[in-house]
């Protein structure tokens, strides 16, 4: 029992990331009908927003340490971040420590801007072109974006730690009444899951309970009629693209402490996220979320020693295997809408 709970928990953080990226992909596909291969790059840019902010916070200048000299007799200096000068040393240290969560505030406007520029500048011109062209141009864009990041940040992963308060793990098993030390779970993964749940909830609430969301949903169902009613649906869809970019970016920001960001992390996630979207059903938001978590958890079950002993290598291929089975038996995906990209 404890082993099962542990695997479910382990699957949650990856599942959250899949779900968030797949949610954004589905939002874009459902509203604009565009298959966005650059969505992984948006996830990656979000992660690098966190890196940028933590670097900005730690920008420092040299000050003399009074009364101390190094072994050559020169006066000793040390680096003091500017932020210490502005907010005092303890507040400054806290800000640096909390740079990843603070990056959320920084990433939202950046990602919305990136998304809107992408949609207005490039993707707008591809609505009428076949899906293959959309895939190809966004694939090219993804290459360009990740190369730009690589140029400025280098090819190596950049460790970006979580705040001290969330470092380390806790004994989740003991809380649930199992033997101690059976289920050890890092705090940050729980934070990530809670954050993902919050974002997903917020997106659904936004679409369900606001007028804007209602118009967008109407537009997803029948774009032409909404346009005929005198509503500027294109503008709203552009905003939705920015929102989807922000969702992917936030998923990236919060993922940095779990995996140090590097320039190709977006592509690594993108391939799997596409599989997730297809399994969930093209154009179905709940389907994307459900499939994200299901596949994340399945993946973590498949990497249990007991399972690998029976079917070697299953942990590597489980997601693809599930995708193939689903696509062949239920082409619409788990919760796909009728008539969306069917043959």
């Amino acid at each position: 029992m404890d082993a099962i709970i542990l695997q479910i928990l382990n699957g949650l953080d990856k599942g959250s990331a899949y779900a968030l990226i797949a949610l954004g992909l589905t939002l874009i596909f459902g509203t604009l009908g565009v298959v966005n291969f650059a969505h992984g790059a948006l996830f990656m840019i979000g992660a690098f927003c966190a890196v940028t902010l933590s670097r900005l916070f730690s920008l420092s200048h040299e000050v003399l340490v009074p009364g101390e000299t190094d072994f050559l007799g020169n006066p000793k200096t040390k680096d003091v971040p500017y932020i210490y000068d502005w907010f005092g040393e303890s507040t400054g240290a806290a800000i640096i420590d909390w740079s990843v969560p603070l990056a959320i505030l920084f990433a939202i406007p950046v990602m919305i801007a990136v998304g809107v520029i992408m949609e207005r500048g490039l993707i707008k011109h591809f609505y009428k072109r076949p899906h293959a062209d959309q895939i190809l141009v966004t694939f090219g864009l993804a290459i360009v974006l990740q190369e730009i990041i690589k140029y400025y940040y280098g090819a190596n992963p950049i460790p970006t730690p979580a705040p001290q308060a969330f470092a380390g793990s806790f004994d989740f098993g003991a809380m649930l009444g199992f033997d101690p030390n059976t289920i050890i779970y890092p705090y940050w993964r729980l934070v990530y899951f809670a954050f993902a749940a919050l974002i997903i909830g917020a997106v659904f609430a936004f679409l369900q309970f606001t007028t804007f969301g209602m118009v967008v949903r109407a537009g997803m169902a029948d774009r032409e009629t909404v346009g005929l009613l005198g509503i500027n649906i294109d503008k709203r869809f552009t905003i939705m693209f920015g929102l989807a970019a922000a969702v992917a970016g936030l998923a990236g920001v919060m993922y940095t402490p779990i995996n140090s960001p590097n320039y190709h992390m977006g592509m690594d996630f993108l391939v799997l996220s596409f599989v997730v979207v297809v399994v969930g059903g093209m154009g179905s938001l709940p389907g994307a979320v459900l499939a994200g978590f299901v596949l994340g958890i399945l993946e973590s079950f498949a990497s249990m020693r007991e399972v690998i002993d029976i079917i070697p290598g299953i942990n590597q291929v489980i997601i693809y295997l599930v995708a193939i089975i689903i696509l062949l038996t239920r082409p619409r995906g788990l919760m796909g809408r009728k008539g969306v990209m069917e043959d």
Partner: peptide
């Protein structure tokens, strides 16, 4: 198997098969 679907589904299916073969060739 893959040609039972078309469009993006075909792309994803071929991608899934290739990635599976890559993962298996790399490990098991």
């Amino acid at each position: 198997i893959s040609l039972r679907r078309s469009g993006i589904y075909f792309s994803i299916l071929t991608l899934a098969f290739a990635q599976m073969m890559f993962a298996l060739a790399y490990s098991v």
